[in-house]
Design a protein around this nucleic acid. Structure first.
Lengths: 143, 143
DNA sequence: TTCGGTGCAAAAGATTTGCATATGT
DNA sequence: ACATATGCAAATCTTTTGCACCGAA
């Protein structure tokens, strides 16, 4: 089976918390890992439904929360108000095209460092951050 | 009357767009300007209701959209999914305390410049951005 | 008089919750 | 056997829309 590492991580998280290892949880994790980045609950639901037609939205929502708890997924909410999930990983930020919806990622040490300095100046303890640039991507800008 | 400048701006926007100058619009703008920053539609509704008890949510929502159009307000959505409004002004970003909900602002030339360089590198045209640090504010951090 | 505006109630869209049933352990 | 999960439907929460009536120009 693919995604062995993550499957083991899930199993171990479930075990440690006296939770149950179910087909649904396995399928949802698998679909999530398979998916292209920034997948919505709706899309996950559709994906899982192909393998397991009578799964409920509810289970997808609940399972994604669980995966976030388990450290396997991260929740993101861009300006359209829909929650998306992506694989937990190093800090990075987003370029969101408001025409075609394409989401690109970027990373910048310098900005990270600067923002931490600013937080310190305010005696603010940063737990997470979001930094998103909204506009037109290469293919959508007209000039 | 206070907020003369903004009231005039509203009047002129309404006139130029063949829209009507109503008591409700005036009251909502006034409550918005009076309010502390980052006010929600709900709070605005409650505030306006004190002067005009039978105002509807609908009017508040519609009017805030109009004020955004008119350039008098800016819409912000933090991670709780609720839309907040603030006075249109220079770029600035936010420190959001996830314990007490306090929202502070910061501004950084350096970060602005850097993010524009990154966008350029991706051939991305930035129309707006959001940069938010979530964590514990001075009063809520325990150390 | 004529459009645009308002307020209500109902709809919408995303997410959560209550509950009876099903299923891991 | 027992506690947790699941799936459905109903509830929530924020925001939007349809519509009859109201009011500014």
């Amino acid at each position: 089976m693919s995604h062995e590492v993550e499957m083991k991580a899930l199993a171990s998280y479930l075990e440690q918390n006296n939770l149950k290892h179910t087909k649904q949880r396995e399928l949802i994790l698998s679909a999530f890992l398979e998916a292209k980045r920034h997948i919505t609950s709706e899309d996950l639901y559709q994906a899982v439904r192909q393998q397991h037609p009578n799964i409920g939205y509810t289970t997808v929502y609940r399972t994604m929360k669980l995966l976030v708890e388990a450290g396997l997924a991260t929740e993101r909410r861009f300006d359209d108000g829909i929650t998306r999930y992506e694989v937990e990983q190093e800090h990075h930020d987003h370029l969101v095209c408001i025409k075609c919806g394409r989401i690109q990622e970027f990373e910048c040490e310098m900005i990270e460092k600067t923002q931490n300095e600013i937080a310190e100046r305010h005696e603010f303890l940063v737990l997470r951050h979001r930094h998103e640039l909204y506009g037109h991507c290469r293919d959508c800008r007209e000039d």
